[in-house]
Structure formats: C-alpha cells, structure tokens
C-alpha cells in the first residue's frame, strides 16, 4: 500500500501545483526563505495579485 499512497499523494500535489491551488503556500515558503523581513500578503491579497499577473500576456493558444 505505501507505494500506491505515495503515487496518489504525488498526483494530488501535481494537480494542486498545475492548477495554482498551492500558489499561496509556495508564496509563503518563498517569502520565508528570501524576504522574511518584508510585509506578508494575506491569502486574499496574494490571490488578487497572482491572478492579475497571470493574465498579462499570451496565455492561451488556438
């Protein structure tokens, strides 16, 4: 069973990563590592910024 669980957990992580579901958690980690002294955005504020920046430029194709 551990093999299977491992696979499911990895697939779930991949899905969260691909969809951006874990974007805030990654931001927290990045923030803690690189700029711990700067003010931290709340989940809501972060999501607003993330979504806006994501849609600047060519993101979808024909």
């Amino acid at each position: 069973m551990p093999m299977k669980n491992n696979f499911l957990i990895r697939a779930w992580r991949g899905l969260r990563r691909l969809s951006g579901d874990d974007a805030y958690e990654r931001y927290l980690a990045h923030h803690a590592e690189h700029h711990p002294d700067e003010p931290l955005l709340s989940r809501e504020e972060f999501f607003k910024q993330w979504q806006n920046s994501k849609w600047q430029g060519v993101k979808r194709c024909c």
Binding site: R16, S19, G20, D21, A23, E44, F47, K48, W50
Partner: peptide, 9 residues
C-alpha cells in the same frame, strides 16, 4: 475571490 480565496480546485 471572496468565498474561499485562492481555492482553485
């Protein structure tokens, strides 16, 4: 945006 911010899935 408002109800569950950032819960994309």
């Amino acid at each position: 945006r408002s109800i569950r911010p950032g819960r994309v899935l």
